[in-house]
Computed example of a mutant assay.
Amino acid sequence: MMAAGTNYIYPPHYLLSQLMADFVIWLNSNAALTLHPVEYATMAHYRFVSIHPFRDGNGRTARLIMNLLLIRAGYPIVVINNQVRNDYINALAYGQQNQDDLSGLFDLVCDAVISSLVETLRLLVTASSSREKGQVFYQEIIDFIDKNVGK
């Protein structure tokens, strides 16, 4: 099977078991775990989607893995917006065709991380300023943060 719009050929089905085992070994390796969390999550996303173990849903699964790794590192969930979908697909294809050059994909993920962090901070500022205004939702957010930050 070939990646849409590229010359990248996904690995044959008989290699998937070993490739997935190698992927999990890499995920838990010291080399991977010493990467910056955003780089680690980006590389994990790329490696999984390049193995392409399923007929459908590989990109969604790769983004879920990426977000799990980001959450475990204390980052908020990131979304690759539809406005950059073509850039995202092109960045994946570029990496697959150019010796795993992930610079474009990393830039997209970094932009998504920054947007998510800004949105989280915006929510926290709104929650903080609404603390005494009887807005229960925001009060619950502040209470949660007060109990859990620093733990």
Rank of each mutant, 00 (worst) to 15 (best):
M1Q: 15
M2H: 12
M2P: 00
A3W: 03
A3P: 03
A4E: 06
I9P: 00
I9Q: 15
Y10F: 10
P11A: 05
P12D: 07
P12V: 01
Y14T: 13
Y14Q: 10
L16D: 08
S17M: 08
L19E: 14
L19N: 11
M20A: 12
A21H: 06
V24M: 10
L27Y: 04
L27V: 13
S29F: 14
A31C: 10
A32V: 01
A32P: 00
T34G: 03
H36C: 02
P37C: 02
V38D: 12
V38F: 13
V38W: 10
V38S: 06
V38L: 04
E39V: 15
Y40L: 09
Y40I: 10
A41H: 10
T42Y: 07
T42N: 12
T42P: 07
M43C: 04
A44L: 07
H45K: 09
H45T: 05
Y46R: 00
F48G: 08
F48P: 00
V49K: 06
I51N: 11
H52V: 09
H52S: 06
P53T: 13
F54N: 13
F54W: 01
D56V: 07
D56H: 06
N58A: 02
N58P: 05
G59S: 02
R60F: 01
A62G: 04
I65Y: 04
I65D: 11
M66E: 11
N67K: 08
N67G: 07
L68N: 11
L68S: 10
L68D: 11
L69I: 11
I71S: 11
A73F: 06
P76H: 03
P76Q: 06
I77P: 02
I77S: 13
V78L: 05
V79M: 13
I80P: 01
I80F: 00
N81E: 06
V84G: 02
V84K: 01
V84M: 03
N86M: 01
D87P: 00
Y88C: 03
Y88N: 06
Y88A: 04
I89V: 06
A91T: 00
A93G: 09
A93K: 11
G95C: 05
Q97A: 09
Q97L: 15
N98R: 05
D101I: 01
L102N: 12
G104T: 00
L105A: 01
L108N: 04
V109H: 06
C110L: 13
V113N: 11
V113F: 15
V113A: 07
I114N: 03
I114E: 12
S115H: 01
S116Y: 04
L117F: 10
E119F: 15
E119P: 02
E119A: 08
R122P: 15
L124V: 14
L124D: 15
V125H: 08
V125P: 05
A127R: 01
S128Y: 14
R131L: 15
E132Y: 06
E132H: 13
V136Q: 04
F137G: 12
Y138H: 14
Q139G: 14
Q139V: 09
I141K: 02
I142S: 07
D143I: 05
F144T: 03
F144P: 09
F144S: 04
I145W: 10
I145S: 09
I145E: 11
K147Y: 14
V149Y: 13
V149D: 06
G150T: 02
K151M: 11
K151Y: 10
